[in-house]
Design a protein around this nucleic acid. Sequence first.
RNA 1: CGGGACGUGGCGCAGCCUGGUCAGCGCGCGUGCCUUGGGAGCACGAGGUCGGCGGUUCAAAUCCGCCCGUCCCGACCA
Length: 572
Amino acid sequence: MLYSRLLIPTLKENPAEAEAVSHRLLLRAGMIRKLASGIYNYLPLGLRVLRKVEAIVREEMNRAGALEVLLPAVQPAELWLESGRWQVYGKELLRFKDRHQRDCCFGPTHEEVITDLVRREVHSYRQLPLNLYQIQVKFRDEIRPRFGLIRGREFIMKDGYSFDVDEAQAEVTYQAMYEAYSRIFRRCGLDFKVVEADTGPIGGSFSHEFMVLADTGEDTLASCTACDYAANLEKAEAVAPNPRPAPAAGGEPYQEVATPGVRTVEEVAAFFRAAPAEIVKTLIYETEQGPVAVLLRGDHEVNEVKVKNLLGVTDLYLAGPARVEELTGAEVGFSGPVGLRLPLYADQAVMSLAACITGANRSGCHLAGVVPGRDFQPFRVADLRQVTENDPCPRCGGRLTLLKGIEVGHIFKLGTKYSQALKATFLDANGEERFFFMGCYGIGVSRIVAAAIEQGHDADGIIWPMALAPFQVMLIPISLEEEATRGAAFRVYEELAAAGVEVLLDDRDERPGVKFKDCDLLGIPLRVVLGPKTLAQGRAEIRHRRTRDITFVELDKLKDVLTAQIAQELHG
RNA sequence: CGGGACGUGGCGCAGCCUGGUCAGCGCGCGUGCCUUGGGAGCACGAGGUCGGCGGUUCAAAUCCGCCCGUCCCGACCA
């Protein structure tokens, strides 16, 4: 295509609104423009990249035997009432009424719609397994959209849903999706890691997330340096410490110590000249089932997902200062488990302490020499903390390391959660009615575009992997005034285009510096420069965006060299 | 929603504390000349109800109040 005919509004300066690299560069390269918070226009170049991602996803889903469908974005409330999620989903679900005052929503996900479709159309085990997917606009009214395409409110997602006769078959499908996803992200040129994940509000029993490794990632993952264990931080298991002998019946009783103004773990540790690991902190949480206390070692951080899962609650938030005082009788900073009339949930590490320092539930006082199991008895003991750097691996005992990642894919085993809720059944070989075993599989298509930039950029701009680049080759004539250069540029352009190369000819009346800057900013993998000096030798210059390597090639070999290079980068 | 920052031609910003002479700079845009291997130069020119509403004042971009919008940090997720 001709540059002058495209709409590529590049920006010299960073827009004030963009912080994340991918957001800045997508704006600067003229690929997207914001319409409202978390809602973007895709300009021609941005759309070309998006379509590349979609094509890869489509090919690999089809290869894995999934069938493409297209479901409506607007959905009736009835289905959501039936599944129970109309009440549960919260404000993220964009709701509105149509002209007949019927409740509707803009689909954030499509379990209800797909299950409804399948329960109407699929009645026999002979039609299974069935795996349906779509690539479509989703809307989630995010609390805080950010980082451009990484967390938009409206975004493009590939969502797929599988239906199997039983758990074992569902497992086979899940594995096939796992492999298809791995192929997709590999083809997109992404450096990713697969981690075990919490299932969250989608529900189900088991799930994996596909994380693109990037420092700007919103997710933290724990990865073993020795084996292949990797998990989202919210899922990563902490290894139980060695058990401590049961506390002696007698022994030294605990003492109350006046600690005015000493509230935080750091302050308490300094006051008692103790390590944070010898302190037990008491967090007061509100839940829909009432307040609870969570006990953790002073050097550990609570994992609220684990707490939610243990308690079986969906609302969990720290109680405010007034509420803490009401429940414990003391200001924040002096809560403790001894004598506290709240259900106590203790992290397992707390229970292996021989003795610890805790709040006294009296302002300005702490207790020293408190023996867990003797002086207080938790209602439940479990793994409730976040793992930390160098924690032991729960599988092999090696060391865990923490990494940042962007979630680009998530696969779930749903089991029969939705098929039961929506009464979606089929007849098995024995003529018995059974619920479908479901799985669901999501890919953030537009997020991949951003993730690829987070991983592929330098000070000059984007560095697209060949598979995602909006164009494979940028052709830059040094001068359009000079007839020889101009003629050569158009001849090469026609030849490359005819050979199926995606080539962009920069035919603008600009100085070469401007074209070079824009070419780097746009991230086109291969740049071909045609100038009078090289043309006089019958050659062209090829520059590789990533390596910055420059080679000179005879004009009559140019097409072959380029097509070979493109093929090599696409198929490795 | 809690905490922070911000809103001035298309983009990036200054001016605001200390109200008046303040609507300005750079980039971009248009025209002409000139230039052509890393965002050139000169000249002329177009473009802004200073986010909105209300208040204080002789006078408001500037002070006060409310509202709207945007971004960043936390609770949600592809």
